[in-house]
Amino acid sequence: MLIKGRIKYKNALIVNKELLQNMDRILSKYYDNICYNTTLRNGDIIDYDSLEELVSYDNYGKRKIKNLRMYSLANFSIDFDLNGLSIHSYSSTVLGNYSIKNYDDSIIIENKLLEEIKKYKQPWYCTLFSKISIVYFLIFLTFLIVLANLITLANHNSTKDNMSISEYVNVTFIGTAIILGVSYFCSRIRDALFPPLIFYWGHEIEKYNELKGIRTQIFWGVIIASMLPIVPSLIKFFL
């Protein structure tokens, strides 16, 4: 009997040395010769002789790690990657396949690995924002453009001034360009502020710590900005 199992994790994740060490320890009980390789942002692929060599990698700039594979030949592979990435967002951050002859062992492997992975998930709001689809931006902005067109049409009707077909085409074209531009800009901000997969070693440690500081500043900035309009009323009420 040969059991072919699958491991999948959907939430935003921080992959660090401790997580990989713990997963390596779990898998080493069932598989030999566990290997690692990474694909960098510039497209290069690196094979590592050991886990220690992997976590000592600089992980910086254009040579920053894009995805990581943990595997044993013909037995298992676990990919830390944005699987199913599309305009709708991603479907998972971890996707693995394994083969083993004992059914009980397959249950143990899956449960222990998922239990370990969950310890290193990012805060819930990181998963929430990182999964916001570009489609949502498109729908929202399309609604705004349609609303603007209706208002413009109503104004022209009230002044008995008919819009020509070319004017409608121009408005639609400009609106579409704005929708695409703003959606792309919003998606870039989302990816920068809430990356769903962090390989937390090398220069990425410093960068991620800076990112957390930026998110904190933005959070308090939004809170303060939302409170400012009611401050005069509060002062007037208490005085």
Rank of each mutant, 00 (worst) to 15 (best):
L68S: 00
G61Y: 12
I165F: 14
I223A: 11
Y57P: 05
F199A: 03
N155G: 11
V182P: 07
L211N: 06
K131W: 09
I46G: 03
I178K: 12
F129S: 09
I108Q: 13
K10V: 09
I78S: 08
G84P: 06
N111R: 15
L54H: 02
E115C: 07
M227Q: 08
L113R: 01
N22P: 02
S166G: 13
S92N: 07
N22Q: 11
N16A: 06
Y208G: 03
D191N: 09
I179W: 07
N155S: 14
G84E: 09
T93I: 05
Y200I: 00
K236Y: 09
S72W: 05
F137Y: 15
E206D: 11
I108V: 12
Q217I: 13
I151L: 14
F129Y: 13
G43L: 04
N155K: 15
P232Q: 06
T127Y: 07
L239T: 15
I165Q: 11
R190K: 13
V94P: 00
G175Q: 09
K29G: 05
D104A: 04
K236P: 03
V15C: 03
L40F: 01
L19K: 03
L144Y: 03
D81S: 10
D49C: 08
L153I: 08
L153S: 12
I107Y: 12
I34W: 04
E110P: 06
F185T: 13
G181S: 07
L13Y: 02
